Amino acid sequence: MAALEFCLAAVPLFTLIFAILDFGRYTITIQSLRMLADASARANMIKCYTPAVIASNSPSTCTGDYLADADKQTIAPFLYGAGLTPTVSTAATATAGGNALVVTARQTGFTMLVPIWGSTFNAPSASTNIPY
């Protein structure tokens, strides 16, 4: 009888423990993507955005990736685990408050380990806006 009770209690308990660990992994990934997007936006502002504004040019052409892969790995080492590599892209967009450069960091191969989440949290991304 004790073995049966253990089985009835263990399944939800271990599911809850693994779900908490999996969601923690997702949270660390999102925070690392935010750090990477912010660092990429800073590099963009230093290397292209500010010189373009000083020269009275539109910074809308500053859509390059100004961080080397080694710098990205130093900023967010957690994102490079399990053979994954994050991607960073910059695009000029029009927003309600004016124009902005949007720097987006994505982790394309990321998937949740516990199947209760479905595909809701797969392929996380984080963005930073640079208004102009």
Results as ranks from 00 to 15, higher is better:
M45K: 06
V114D: 00
T108M: 06
G98N: 08
T87E: 08
L79S: 07
R106A: 05
G81Q: 15
L8Y: 01
I130S: 05
S58G: 08
Y49F: 15
F110G: 03
S60A: 14
A123C: 06
L79R: 06
G64A: 03
V102D: 10
M1S: 03
V88F: 12
F121V: 00
G98P: 03
E5V: 08
A123N: 14
C62H: 01
D71N: 14
P77N: 12
A96Q: 13
G109P: 02
I30C: 12
V103E: 09
A82G: 12
S56V: 04
T128Y: 07
P77I: 14
F78S: 15
L67T: 02
C48Y: 10
V114P: 00
F14M: 15
Y80R: 04
L67M: 01
F23T: 05
N99Y: 13
L113V: 04
S58Q: 10
L113I: 02
Q73K: 07
A9S: 13
S125I: 04
A39S: 14
A70S: 15
Y132F: 15
A39T: 05
T128M: 07
S58L: 03
P86F: 04
Y80Q: 06
L8F: 11
T128V: 15
S60I: 09
A123H: 13
E5N: 09
L84Q: 14
A82P: 02
T50P: 00
C48K: 03
A41T: 12
Q73F: 05
R42W: 09
A105L: 02
I75R: 04
A92N: 15
A10H: 05
S58W: 02
A105M: 05
C7D: 05
C48L: 11
T120R: 13
V11L: 15
T15Q: 07
L21R: 01
S60K: 08
A82R: 09
T87L: 07
C48D: 04
S119Y: 00
M35K: 11
T108C: 05
L33H: 06
K72E: 12
A68L: 13
T90D: 12
M112I: 01
F121A: 01
P59N: 06
I46G: 01
L16A: 15
L67N: 03
G24P: 10
A3G: 00
S60H: 07
S58T: 13
T15E: 11
S32D: 15
A76G: 06
R106Y: 00
L33A: 08
T128N: 03
Q107H: 08
A82E: 14
P131F: 14
N99F: 08
C48W: 10
F18T: 14
T108E: 13
C62L: 05
D22Y: 06
D22T: 02
L4S: 01
S127I: 08
R25V: 11
G98K: 05
I116D: 05
A92T: 11
F23A: 07
T120S: 11
M45P: 03
T95V: 12
F14K: 04
I20T: 14
G24Y: 11
C62F: 06
A91K: 14
F23N: 02
M1V: 03
A126N: 02
L8T: 05
Y132S: 07
Q107M: 11
S125T: 11
A126G: 07
T95Q: 15
